[in-house]
């Protein structure tokens, strides 16, 4: 659970408890149960009345840190849980996710090292990652 990498720090009263799931929950036993924790957090934020978007890695090329199916849940205050790249592009994905929450229209993003701004937002490992960002409605 990549909580410590939040680019936008969460207010003290919103510090997320870890683990999110009780040990007794069968979800705590899921393969990649941290992925399930991200989905549970997305649902709980929505239930609490927050705007929520979900980013999912749908395809990777070459070397990339997170496999297809990895999730990042973003809340309307910029707080997020999970990871889609191990920290390289999360900042940009969070920005896009906030936009998707407002527009209500899903979006496909692609990050690689081919563009000239790669030193700013991209994957240092040389891979490319395609990410689907959708609002939770």
């Amino acid at each position: 659970m990549v909580v410590g990498e939040a680019l936008v720090s969460s207010p003290a009263d919103q510090v997320t408890r870890w683990p999110l799931l009780d040990a007794g929950s069968s979800m705590a036993l899921m393969p990649n149960h941290s992925e399930m924790e991200v989905l549970v957090a997305a649902r709980d934020w929505k239930l609490a009345g927050c705007g929520v978007a979900l980013a999912t890695v749908v395809k990777t090329w070459g070397s990339s840190p997170r496999p297809a199916g990895s999730h990042l849940a973003v809340r309307d205050d910029g707080f997020f849980l999970g990871s889609v790249s191990g920290g390289c592009v999360e900042g940009a994905v969070v920005e896009e996710a906030l936009g998707v929450m407002k527009s209500g229209v899903p979006k496909v993003l692609e990050f690689g090292v081919t563009n000239e701004r790669a030193w700013e937002v991209g994957l240092a490992c040389g891979g490319t990652v395609r990410i689907f960002v959708e609002p939770l409605q």
Binding site: M27, V40, R43, P135, L136
Partner: peptide, 17 residues
């Protein structure tokens, strides 16, 4: 994603289906 879809996914995971 619709909240209902996410609820179903989470319920099925919990039920191990």
């Amino acid at each position: 994603m619709k909240t209902g879809t996410l609820d179903t996914v989470l319920a099925e995971i919990e039920a191990k289906r």
